[in-house]
Simulated assay, not measured.
Amino acid sequence: MSSLIGTLEADVEISASADKFFGVMCTAPFKLTTIVPDIVKSCDLLDGLWGALGAITQWTYVFGGVTQTVVLAITSVNPFTKSVTYGLIKGDLSTEFSTFAVKINADQKLVGTTVHLTFTYVKLTDNVSTPQALLDLGVEVIKALGAYLTYAYNAV
């Protein structure tokens, strides 16, 4: 019998600055709809202010060829450490997880940034798969955003 409680983590190296990356992921995630339109279809603010603690957003995204929707709230935000955590309120993930949190931390290096992505979750049943494929999708989005920011701010 596997555990219902889990954590998955990934580190992604990008060339963009931690400030620019955090700026999009925390205060302007709606920009992902133009950066990775094949994955993020919409990101709408339902309540609060973009990037503020308690802000509620609704995301529509494509995962495994299926369009899904999730409503998330910012449960933690720290602009000094470039960290934001989104917690699950409702949506398609609620059919498999009682709790699901996505933490994104951008750590500026001498050259580039290390983005640490963490999923913490509680599965509803033992039959629910570990969300590795969803973590892989998150890594893909991070890489695409990093490449976009690097190009956008280094283009002549």
Rank of each mutant, 00 (worst) to 15 (best):
G112R: 03
A101F: 08
Y121N: 01
T114Y: 08
T125R: 05
V128C: 04
Y86D: 11
F100S: 00
G87W: 00
K109R: 12
D107K: 12
D107V: 14
T99E: 06
Y121I: 02
V115E: 05
T125C: 11
K109Q: 15
Y86F: 12
L117Y: 09
F97A: 00
N127F: 15
N105A: 13
N127L: 15
K123F: 05
N127I: 15
I89P: 03
T85E: 12
P131K: 05
K103N: 14
T114I: 14
Q108P: 07
S83Q: 14
P131H: 03
T120R: 10
K109Y: 07
T95L: 05
V84H: 03
V128S: 01
V128A: 01
T130A: 14
T99Y: 05
V84T: 09
T81L: 12
T113V: 10
T130N: 13
P131I: 00
T120L: 10
N127Q: 15
K82G: 04
S98R: 09
G112Y: 06
V122A: 12
G112W: 07
V122R: 11
K90I: 11
V122F: 03
V102S: 08
E96Q: 03
T120M: 11
Q108M: 06
D126V: 15
V111W: 01
G112D: 02
T99F: 08
A101P: 00
T130C: 10
L117Q: 10
N127K: 15
T130G: 02
L93H: 04
T118R: 11
T113P: 09
K82I: 05
F100W: 02
V84L: 07
V111D: 02
F97N: 00
I104N: 13
Y121F: 14
K123G: 07
S83K: 14
L110D: 10
Y86P: 05
G112T: 05
H116F: 12
D126F: 15
K82Y: 09
N127H: 14
E96D: 10
A106N: 02
I89A: 02
T81W: 11
N105Y: 04
S129Q: 14
L124P: 02
A106V: 02
F119H: 13
V128G: 01
K123S: 08
K109D: 08
S98P: 09
D92I: 09
N127C: 15
S94Y: 05
P131N: 05
V122T: 14
D92Y: 08
T125V: 12
Q108F: 08
V128H: 00
T125Q: 10
N127G: 15
D92P: 09
K90F: 09
H116K: 14
I104G: 09
V115N: 01
T99I: 05
P131D: 03
L110T: 12
L88C: 07
K82R: 13
L88G: 07
T113E: 04
D107S: 13
Y86H: 10
T113F: 11
N127S: 15
T113N: 07
K90Q: 11
Q108K: 06
T99M: 07
T99P: 06
T118G: 10
V122Y: 04
V102R: 04
F100K: 01
F100V: 00
V111N: 03
T120K: 11
V102M: 06
T95N: 03
T81D: 06
N127W: 12
A106H: 04
T99L: 06
T120N: 13
T85Y: 04
I89M: 08
K123W: 07
G91V: 01
I104L: 15
T114W: 07
A101Q: 07
Y121E: 01
L88W: 03
